[in-house]
């Protein structure tokens, strides 16, 4: 009983710690990270607010923290920044207007690829060419085996 119990206890312990961790995963710091990684830092080249260590980005994260604690929804906070910094504050193309194109393009690319493959590559056609050649004689097969061993 004791022997079987220990692994089960360990397993439960692991589950519990990991479980609490995934509850903590919604902790405020992770929520900040989620919002901040959807915004571009206005003063740095190509870094998100989540990544950047610039003072502006640090202050933006602090503002995000304050707004989240005050109960604002992430979308509201993001809109706040877009109203001030324009569309270029967003880290992803908007899902309106031509931004949609950005999201459709890779899918369209793969779809076009698959369509091209379907059009150009025929599957399951019997291959006739192998039939042209008669099976090798035992002597030839032996020569082949020796030749291959040599080539190795």
């Amino acid at each position: 009983m004791k022997r079987a119990g220990t692994p089960i206890l360990v397993f439960l312990f692991v589950l519990l710690t990991l479980g609490t961790r995934s509850v903590l995963a919604r902790a405020i710091d992770d929520q900040i990270r989620d919002v901040a990684s959807q915004l571009m830092c206005p003063v740095c080249e190509g870094r998100t607010v989540a990544e950047s260590n610039s003072q502006l980005a640090t202050q933006m994260r602090d503002l995000i923290r304050q707004r989240l604690l005050a109960g604002d929804r992430p979308e509201t906070i993001i809109r706040y920044f877009v109203e001030r910094y324009g569309e270029s504050a967003l880290a992803t193309p908007p899902t309106t207007g031509l931004g949609v194109l950005m999201w459709l393009l890779p899918a369209a690319g793969v779809a076009a690829g698959v369509a091209w493959v379907r059009a150009r590559v025929r599957v399951g056609t019997p291959r006739a060419w192998e039939d042209d050649v008669a099976p090798l004689s035992p002597g030839d097969l032996e020569r082949l085996r020796r030749g291959l061993d040599e080539a190795r």
Partner: peptide, 13 residues
């Protein structure tokens, strides 16, 4: 000190 005014204006530099 917390940059709130700057962010409210959209200061980028």
């Amino acid at each position: 000190p917390k940059g709130r005014t700057a962010i409210a204006y959209g200061v980028a530099g």
